[in-house]
């Protein structure tokens, strides 16, 4: 897995030892899930919320692009419990997560880490940054240093202009 870039108060940082991994969906693997930082796919979370909470460790949510917005709305009151919400981009041209991100930030008030994972390119940082993403697990072939520099350059960018301005 590539290193992560995370926005922190004043800047962006490269995180080389990010612990978050997607939790296995197979029952057997989960029975023996070691302690750790797990991102639970939504379906799994819906099924096993109590068990997951009982583990007594921080947990995250993993969202595939076909997540129904209503399922997120149903979670509204508990969204703040997730240390991380990861939105998956199987290909960078799948823009559904863009709408999901906006819902999470604007409508559901999620203020924690919103992470782009999967086919995350330099070229989509502009859009994801504007939509409130604040962490990026860059695509394998993308140099993280370049991505970091790009994010920093976006701070001054006029392309960040708000569409309602």
């Amino acid at each position: 897995m590539n290193a992560l870039i995370r926005e922190s108060a004043a800047d962006f940082q490269i995180v080389f030892d990010d612990p978050w991994r997607i939790a296995p969906e197979e029952e057997a693997a989960r029975q023996s899930l070691p302690k750790g930082a797990w991102l639970y796919p939504l379906a799994l979370w819906q099924k096993e919320e109590a068990l997951i909470r009982a583990r007594g460790e921080a947990f995250g949510l993993w969202l595939y692009p076909d997540t129904p917005p209503a399922a997120l709305e149903a979670l509204k009151a508990r969204l703040a419990d997730f240390a991380v919400i990861a939105l998956d981009f199987p290909v960078f041209t799948d823009g559904r997560a863009y709408s999901l991100a906006r819902l999470l930030r604007e409508r559901l008030g999620y203020a924690g880490e919103l992470r782009a994972v999967g086919h995350v390119l330099l070229d989509t940082l502009l859009f994801t940054r504007r939509l409130g993403f604040n962490a990026w697990a860059m695509s394998e072939r993308q140099k993280v240093e370049d991505a970091l520099a790009h994010l920093q350059s976006l701070r001054q960018s006029h392309m960040m202009r708000h569409p309602y301005q």
């Binding site: 960078f92 041209t93 799948d94 823009g95 863009y98 709408s99 906006r102 989509t124 502009l126 859009f127 994801t128 504007r130 939509l131 392309m159 202009r161 569409p163 309602y164 301005q165």
Partner: peptide, 13 residues
């Protein structure tokens, strides 16, 4: 035009 130009949510419809 201004609204749709680089609208972040609708970049990949």
């Amino acid at each position: 035009r201004q609204w749709s130009t680089l609208h972040p949510e609708f970049a990949f419809l």
